[in-house]
Measured scan of single mutants.
Amino acid sequence: DETGKFLVLALYDYQEKSPREVTMKKGDILTLLNSTNKDWWKVEVNGRQGFVPAAYVKFL
């Protein structure tokens, strides 16, 4: 149950560059965990948590 969690859509592919980031593919649906930083949002994708560039995702 994803109640209270926001979902975001990956607009572009992103390859993680550090262990704190996660890789996503364009079209992936991600669970948004934290968006307090304007540049990097914490998400969960494929069972992994990490950061992606905020400009690469949008709210569903």
Rank of each mutant, 00 (worst) to 15 (best):
Tyr14Val: 01
Gln49Tyr: 08
Arg48Gly: 04
Gln15Ala: 13
Met24Lys: 00
Lys26Cys: 06
Leu11Pro: 00
Arg48Leu: 07
Tyr14Ser: 01
Lys17Arg: 12
Leu11Cys: 08
Trp40Glu: 05
Phe59Leu: 15
Ile29Gln: 05
Asp28Gln: 12
Val43Gly: 00
Phe51Lys: 02
Asn37Phe: 07
Glu44Leu: 08
Gly47His: 05
Lys58Asn: 08
Ala55Gly: 13
Ile29Cys: 06
Gly4Asp: 10
Gly50Trp: 02
Val57Arg: 00
Lys38Met: 09
Tyr14Gly: 01
Arg48Ala: 07
Lys5Thr: 12
Phe51Thr: 03
Leu11Asp: 03
Phe51Ser: 03
Val22Thr: 06
Trp41Tyr: 12
Val22Cys: 07
Asn34Gly: 07
Leu11Trp: 05
Thr31Gln: 10
Phe51Val: 07
Trp41Asp: 00
Leu33Gly: 01
Gln15Lys: 12
Glu44Ile: 08
Thr23Ser: 15
Glu2Pro: 14
Phe6Thr: 14
Ile29Glu: 04
Gly50Leu: 03
Ala10Asn: 01
Glu21Lys: 04
Val45Pro: 00
Val57Ser: 00
Leu32Gly: 02
Glu16Gly: 15
Leu30Ser: 02
Glu16Met: 12
Thr36Trp: 10
Leu11Gly: 04
Ala54Phe: 02
Asn34Arg: 06
Lys17Trp: 04
Leu11Tyr: 04
Gln15Ser: 11
Ala54Asn: 03
Tyr56Gly: 08
Met24Gln: 01
Asp1Asn: 13
Ile29Ser: 04
Thr36Glu: 14
Asn37Ser: 09
Lys58Asp: 11
Ser18Leu: 08
Ser18Trp: 06
Lys25Arg: 14
Trp41Ala: 04
Tyr56Phe: 14
Val8Arg: 01
Asp1Ala: 14
Leu30Gln: 01
Met24Arg: 00
Arg20Asn: 14
Ser18His: 11
Lys17Thr: 13
Phe59Gly: 07
Ala54Trp: 02
Ser35Lys: 12
Asp13Arg: 01
Leu11Ala: 07
Thr31Val: 15
Asn46Trp: 05
Thr36Arg: 10
Val43Met: 02
Trp40Val: 03
Lys38Cys: 10
Tyr14Leu: 01
Glu16Arg: 11
Pro19Thr: 10
Gln15Asp: 14
Leu32Trp: 03
Glu16Ala: 15
Asp1Gly: 14
Tyr12Asn: 09
Thr31Asp: 05
Ala55His: 13
Asp13Gln: 03
Met24Leu: 09
Phe59Pro: 14
Leu11Val: 09
Ala10Pro: 01
Ile29Asn: 03
Gln49Lys: 10
Gly27Tyr: 04
Gln49Thr: 13
Val8Phe: 07
Trp41Val: 09
Asp39His: 14
Asn46Phe: 07
Tyr12Phe: 14
Ile29Ala: 04
Lys25Ala: 09
Glu2Ile: 15
Gly27Cys: 06
Asp1Phe: 10
Val45Cys: 10
Thr23Asp: 04
Gly50Ala: 02
Glu2Lys: 13
Gly4Asn: 13
Trp41Asn: 01
Lys42Ile: 14
Met24Phe: 09
Asp28Pro: 00
Lys42Tyr: 15
Thr36Lys: 13
Ala54Lys: 07
Trp40Phe: 07
Phe6Glu: 10
Gln49Ala: 11
Leu30Asn: 01
Val45Met: 12
Tyr56Val: 06
Lys26Leu: 05
Gly4Thr: 13
Gly50Arg: 01
Pro53Lys: 03
Leu11Ile: 12
Phe51Cys: 10
Gln49Glu: 09
Ser35Val: 09
Pro19Ser: 13
Ala55Ile: 10
Gly50Ile: 03
Val8Cys: 11
Val52Cys: 03
Glu2Gly: 14
Thr23Asn: 07
Phe51Asn: 04
Gln15Trp: 11
Asp39Pro: 02
Asp39Gly: 08
Gly4Ala: 13
